[in-house]
Design a protein around this nucleic acid. Structure first.
Length: 570
RNA sequence: UGGGACGUCGACAAGUGGUAAGUCACAUGGUUUUGGUCCAUGUAUCCGCGGGUUCGAAUCCUGCCGUCCCAACCA
């Protein structure tokens, strides 16, 4: 009886649906778009994609995929002066890397310029648009404020024929930038500022990366976007919250023109702690040389995260976990890192590497001898097999793994203590060597030959298993310890006399040049994530690494229980 | 003459009148040749605040309070 109830419960339980999926479910039920789901991802090619865009991409492409629908990639290239072909290339690369495909549906707003122009003419003919000669300043003044109504432009009643003629001449390049604009005739007293006779076209005598010098006028976002969606027969036009006010205009244009009408739905954008995602700020970091370009591994850009070693799958899982709602929120970096560790733990080959070396001499190990021991490549995946690691008289261990006056909770190496060297032997420390400054430069140990492979025949236990490398066999490499770009959780916070630059983490990049890795890692492959056991995940840097001098980036640390204990004591 | 949206655990987030899901973080145990992974357990008598309706309210009504967005010829 009890069992039966349990089964019923499980059947009834459904995955939580976010509000957008609920809307689509309803639309499908009512047959609103004949069951079609067709979304679009519409970036303006004026910057590199970052983690915030990743959410939008996962939403746009992910949801459509779920419903067996389609997603278009569309460059919203309506402002030639801010855009560049460099960005249209990088954006495509990043979307592909994230794992999504637009198949052959790659569009540009600029492909529709002719059509959009005709729609503008229609609007004029319907008496719903006019050419305005007000200057930029005057337009602003005439618009009024949020609490006061605006006043009509003197050109508001310009005859249709005249507006048509003027628009044609604007298009032909007869006027200077700013001389005229085309405006929708809506309501200068509307409580929604976006509805106070918004601009439809402005003159820009600028060369466009797609259309060259063909056009001298370019449509504004609000006019172009709804038309693009309509032309492409988009069903659900998903965008971020700041466009909520624009929706009234979106609907107004499509109603005025009486054409196919997609629905715009807004959701909260993704904000992350310890970083910035505003295009302006990212650009400032690059231009001031505070980072090593857009793909600096500390940047939240997709190319930066990729270079740092974040797997695309982890970013997708993260976006899924973050959810979809209308509440502005900032997600903790810890959640992203959790998902990175999660996928890396399953897939990464384990290797041994020492970041801060301390020499260990095995005093009872024969001089000149070495032996190659078996090591498991990935305990999470036996199919990855094993490899050989060399052992010899002189080794390196991590400095943090030895402590002279060790507290009770410190399980690692210390005088008189026995520990296991992973896949090798138990060793016991009997001596330390210091330099004139009192700093430990060498640790002397004995090993127990009976414990080869790491097990004691007498069943003796040790508290710690440590990583190590053989000094004579190890490869010296450079390792870049990447930390949060900002030490402040919220670098955007307003503080007297400070900007986000002041919250930069001075230790965001620690370059370690005296690191040693096991021979296998001398042949590390680019683009492959490795786990340095007990330390973290690492990947060859795509920019600075060479065969002779490998450079590794630390993708993310392993969780560190000891660090927590240590810090608690302080 | 202001308008539009939003307030549920430290961070996200379900919940749609029947008595507060889940994830991360945190804490405690267990397993472990990574102080990793994995597993188990614990963590909101309460849903911004105050009234009201109801047998019953996070869900409905009402009044406050708070946060975000809008006055680019940006998107």
């Amino acid at each position: 009886m009890e069992n039966k109830n349990l089964v019923v419960d499980e059947e009834v339980k459904t995955e939580p649906r976010d509000f957008i999926r609920q809307i689509i479910d309803k639309d499908n039920e009512s047959g609103k778009y004949d069951g079609r789901v067709h979304t679009r991802f519409p970036p303006e090619p004026n910057g590199y994609l970052h983690i915030g865009h990743a959410k939008a991409i996962c939403v746009d492409f992910g949801i459509a995929k779920e419903y067996n629908g389609l997603t278009n990639l569309r460059f919203d290239d309506t402002n030639p002066v801010t855009e560049d072909i460099e960005y249209v290339d990088s954006i495509q690369e990043d979307i592909k890397w994230l794992g999504y495909s637009w198949d052959d549906r790659l569009y540009y707003a600029s492909m529709y310029f002719e059509k959009i122009y005709q729609y503008a003419q229609q609007l004029i003919k319907k008496g719903l648009a006019y050419v305005c000669s007000l200057s930029l300043d005057d337009i602003r003044e005439y618009r009024g404020t949020v609490k006061e109504a605006g006043k009509p432009s003197p050109d508001r009643e310009r005859p249709i024929e005249e507006s048509l003629d003027l628009l044609e001449r604007m298009k032909n390049g007869e006027f200077e930038d700013g001389a005229y604009t085309l405006r929708a005739k809506i309501d200068m007293a509307h409580s929604n500022m976006k509805m106070r006779d918004p601009l439809i076209y402005r003159i820009k005598n600028a060369s466009h990366h797609q259309t060259g010098d063909k056009w001298h006028i370019y449509p504004m976002y609000d006019f172009a976007h709804c038309l693009e969606d309509s032309i492409e027969k988009i069903t659900h036009s998903l965008c971020t919250l700041e466009f909520q006010n624009n929706r009234a205009l979106y609907d107004w244009f499509l109603d005025a023109l009486d054409i196919y009408h997609p629905q715009q739905i807004e959701f909260a954008r993704l904000e992350l702690t310890h970083t910035v995602t505003s295009k302006r700020k990212l650009k400032e970091l690059v231009e001031k040389g505070l980072v090593d370009g857009w793909d600096d591994p500390r940047m939240p850009t997709l190319c930066g995260l990729r270079r740092k070693g974040y797997p695309a799958e982890a970013i997708r899982n993260f976006c899924e976990a973050v959810g979809l709602a209308k509440r502005n929120s900032t997600v903790e970096l810890a959640l992203l890192e959790y998902h990175v560790r999660q996928v890396l733990n399953k897939s990464s080959l384990r290797m041994m590497g020492v970041i801060n070396p301390l020499k260990v001499v095995i005093t009872n190990y024969p001089e000149g001898q070495d032996e190659w021991l078996d090591a498991v490549n990935n305990p999470e995946n036996p199919d990855d097999g094993t490899r050989k690691v060399p052992f010899s008289k002189e080794l390196y261990i991590e400095r943090d793994d030895f402590m002279e006056d060790a507290p009770r909770k410190f399980f690692r190496l210390s005088q008189g203590r026995e520990v296991r060297l992973r896949y090798a032997y138990f060793i016991k420390c009997h001596d330390i060597v210091k330099d004139e400054n009192g700093e430990i430069i060498e640790v002397h140990c004995t090993y127990d030959p009976e414990t080869k492979g790491g097990n004691a025949p007498d069943g003796r236990k040790v508290k710690a298993t440590m990583h190590w490398v053989s000094a004579q066999h190890a490869k010296q490499v450079e390792v870049r310890m990447l930390n949060n770009l900002f030490s402040e959780e919220n670098p955007n916070k307003k503080e007297e006399g400070k900007t986000f630059i002041d919250f930069l983490n001075p230790d965001s990049l620690e370059i370690k040049t005296n690191c040693f890795v096991e021979p296998e890692l001398a042949n590390a492959k680019s683009g492959v994530n490795y786990q340095f056991e007990r330390i973290g995940y690492f990947i060859l840097d795509s920019k600075y690494s060479t065969k002779e001098k490998p450079v590794f980036n630390r993708t993310v640390t392993l969780k560190d229980a000891w660090k927590k204990i240590k810090n608690k004591k302080k």
